[in-house]
Amino acid sequence: MVAYFVRVELVFKALADGQRRGLLDALRERNGQTLGELCELLPELTRQGVTKHLRILEDADLVVTVKRGRNKYHYLNPVPINEIAERWIGNYERDKLRALSALKAALEEKP
C-alpha cells in the first residue's frame, strides 16, 4: 500500500508542472517522439531542461522510452493517470462528469 502512495505522489508531482503536462499532451497527440522533437515544442527550455522534465515523467511511469539504434523514443503511458481517476472518481460519478464536460465544451464553443 505504501508503494501505491509513493507512486501516486510521483504522478501528482509530475503533473503539477505545466511544461510536463505539455510534453504529455504532445505525446498524446503523436506518440513515439525523440528528445529533439520534444525540444522543439519547448523552445524556451534547454535540451537539459527538457531531459529533466522527461526524467520526472519517467520516474512517475507516465512516459516509457524505447531505444532504437541511436534514437530514444518517448511514449505516453496513461495507466497511472487512469489508476488515479479510478481511485478518485467513482464509476457512479463518471456519467455526470462527462455530461458536465460536454456542457462546458458546448458553452465555450465559438459560433
Score class of each variant (00 low, 15 high):
Lys72Cys: 12
Arg28Tyr: 14
Leu62Tyr: 02
Val66Asn: 01
Lys52Trp: 11
Leu62Met: 03
Glu83Gln: 14
Asp25Met: 08
Pro43Gly: 02
Ala26Asn: 04
Glu40Leu: 13
Asp25Cys: 14
Gly36Phe: 06
Leu38Ile: 08
Arg28Met: 11
Glu83His: 09
Glu83Trp: 11
Tyr73Trp: 14
Glu44Asp: 10
Glu83Arg: 15
Leu45Glu: 15
Leu76Phe: 09
Val50Gln: 00
Glu37His: 01
Val64Lys: 12
Glu83Leu: 15
Leu42Ile: 15
Asn31Phe: 10
Gln33Thr: 03
Leu62Ile: 07
Asn77Ala: 06
Ile81Glu: 12
Ile84Pro: 07
Pro80Phe: 09
Ile81Val: 15
Ala60Thr: 05
Glu44Gly: 06
Leu42Phe: 05
Arg68Asp: 08
Ile81Thr: 07
Thr34Glu: 07
Gln48His: 04
Val50Ala: 00
Leu54Cys: 06
Glu44Asn: 10
Tyr75Arg: 01
Leu24Ala: 11
Leu42Asp: 07
Arg47Ile: 05
Thr51Asp: 01
Leu27Asp: 07
His74Trp: 13
Leu27Phe: 09
Glu29His: 05
His74Thr: 03
Arg55Lys: 14
Pro78Ser: 10
Glu37Ile: 01
Thr46Glu: 14
Glu37Asp: 06
Asp59His: 13
Lys72Tyr: 08
Val63Thr: 04
Leu62Gly: 02
Ile56Thr: 15
Ile84Leu: 14
Val50Glu: 01
Asp25Ala: 15
Thr65Ile: 02
Leu35Ser: 00
Glu40Ile: 07
Glu29Leu: 10
Thr46Cys: 11
Gly49Trp: 13
Gly32His: 05
Arg70Leu: 07
Arg70Lys: 13
Ala26Trp: 01
Cys39Asn: 03
Tyr73Glu: 03
Leu54Ser: 00
Arg70Trp: 15
Thr51Cys: 00
Lys52Thr: 14
Arg70Glu: 00
Lys67Leu: 03
Gly32Phe: 15
Arg47Gly: 04
Asp59Lys: 14
Arg68Asn: 08
Leu41Thr: 01
Val79Phe: 11
Leu38Val: 10
Val66Thr: 10
Asn82Lys: 10
Glu83Lys: 10
Thr34Lys: 09
Ile81His: 02
